[in-house]
């Protein structure tokens, strides 16, 4: 029973690396749209939100069959799913 209840340095570093990767990715072609160039981004499939019932259903399934869950927002409760 070593430091099981604190996050390992490795885990912290992975999260930091992901954040860095995001920045690099974003930096590659950073050319944010002008107000009149937002036609494509306003398509519903281009927003981060999706079909709310679809998402809830699928998240619920995965959270009951896999260990990892969450990450996209806050507010869900648990379940006693078997």
């Amino acid at each position: 029973m070593n430091a099981t209840y604190s996050f390992s340095t490795k885990a912290r570093m992975r999260v930091a690396a992901s954040a860095l990767a995001a920045l690099v990715l974003a930096g590659c072609a950073y050319n944010p749209p002008k107000p009149w160039e937002k036609g494509n981004l306003s398509k519903p499939e281009m927003t981060m939100a999706g079909d709310p019932l679809d998402q809830r259903f699928v998240e619920h399934i995965y959270s009951s069959k896999e260990n990892a869950s969450g990450g996209a927002g806050v507010g869900g409760g648990g379940c006693g799913c078997n």
Binding site: A29, Y30, N31, P32, N40, L41, T47, M48
Partner: peptide
């Protein structure tokens, strides 16, 4: 972030 007119990250 809207990175370009075609990319949302």
């Amino acid at each position: 972030q809207a990175v370009t007119a075609n990319d949302l990250v």
